[in-house]
C-alpha cells in the first residue's frame, strides 16, 4: 500500500501532467512500460474492483479502432483475410493506443477516482479556474443528485402505470414529457434557490475558504511526477 497526497490540487495537477505525457506516446516499449507502471501504482494504492471495471468500458469507436487499424495502417502484411492484409505496423499502432488509453484511465482513477466532487470545486478555485465556472461546477454537482432523484421518481411513477420502454413513438413521447417535466421543475427549483440565496445575502460570489499552503513533500511529489512525465516523453522520442 502506498499513500498518495490527499491535497486535491496536487492530485489534479499530477493527474493532468501525467495524462498529457501519456497521451502523446508513440512507441510500444514505452507505452507498455507506462501501462505496467500504472497498473502497479493502481494495485498498490488499493483502488476498488469497481474502478478496474472502468478499464473495460471501451467506447464503440475504440473497438472499431482495434478492428480496423491493422488493415488501414500500411506496412508488412502478417495476416490476410480475403482481400485485406493486416500489417504488423497496424497491430503495433493499435497496441500503443490501447496501452495509452488504459494507462490514462488508470491514472485518472488513481488520482481522482475517490474524490468528492465538492472538494474538487474548491481545488479548481484555488488553481485559478475562473470563479463562475467553479460556481457552476459545484452547483451542478449539488443539484445533480436532487434532480437525478426527481428523474428516478418520475420513472418509477411511469413504471407504476405499466409503462414499458420500447423502440416506439409512445416511449419517445413519454420520455420527452419526462424531460420536459424535469426542466419545468428544475426552473421552479432554480427560482426558489435564487430567492433563498438572495435572502442570505448572496452577492454574486461564494466566500471560498483560503486553501492551505502546499507542504514540502507535496511539492516534491509534483516535481517527481513532472520528472516522470519528462522522462517517459524523452524515452519515447529518443
Amino acid at each position: 500500500m502506498i499513500a498518495l497526497p490527499g491535497d486535491m490540487r496536487v492530485r489534479l495537477v499530477t493527474a493532468l501532467i501525467l495524462v498529457v505525457a501519456i497521451s502523446q506516446l508513440q512507441t510500444i516499449p514505452v507505452a507498455a512500460t507506462v501501462l505496467a507502471a500504472a497498473v502497479t501504482v493502481a494495485v498498490m494504492s488499493g483502488i476498488g474492483g469497481k474502478a478496474w471495471l472502468r478499464m473495460l468500458h471501451v467506447e464503440t469507436f475504440m473497438i472499431l479502432l482495434f478492428v480496423t487499424l491493422p488493415f488501414t495502417v500500411p506496412g508488412r502484411a502478417v495476416l490476410t483475410i480475403g482481400p485485406f492484409d493486416a500489417s504488423a505496423e497496424g497491430f503495433t499502432r493499435a497496441a500503443v493506443i490501447a496501452c495509452k488509453v488504459s494507462a490514462s484511465v488508470l491514472t485518472i482513477v488513481v488520482f481522482l477516482g475517490s474524490v468528492e466532487a465538492m472538494r474538487l470545486g474548491a481545488a479548481l478555485h484555488s488553481l485559478r479556474v475562473p470563479e463562475p465556472i467553479v460556481r457552476l461546477f459545484v452547483l451542478t454537482v449539488r443539484y445533480l443528485s436532487v434532480i437525478g432523484g426527481e428523474a428516478r421518481r418520475l420513472q418509477e411513477a411511469m413504471r407504476a402505470r405499466a409503462f414499458r420502454p420500447g423502440s416506439n413513438r409512445h416511449t419517445w413521447r413519454s420520455y420527452g414529457n419526462l424531460v420536459g417535466m424535469l426542466l419545468v421543475r428544475a426552473l421552479d427549483r432554480a427560482q426558489r434557490v435564487e430567492e433563498a440565496m438572495l435572502c442570505r445575502g448572496f452577492s454574486g460570489r461564494f466566500p471560498w475558504q483560503k486553501p492551505p499552503r502546499l507542504s514540502r513533500s507535496e511539492m516534491g511529489f509534483m516535481a517527481l511526477a513532472t520528472t516522470a512525465a519528462v522522462l517517459i516523453t524523452a524515452a519515447d522520442r529518443l
Binding site: 451542478t140 445533480l144 436532487v146 434532480i147 435564487e194 452577492s203
Partner: peptide
C-alpha cells in the same frame, strides 16, 4: 452572477436526462 444557479440547475436536469437509456 445571479444567473449561475439557474444555469447550473438546468444543466443538472439535462445531465439527469442524458442518463436515461432510450430504446
Amino acid at each position: 452572477d445571479r444567473m449561475v444557479p439557474r444555469a447550473a440547475i438546468l444543466s443538472a436536469a439535462f445531465f439527469a436526462g442524458s442518463l436515461i437509456a432510450v430504446p
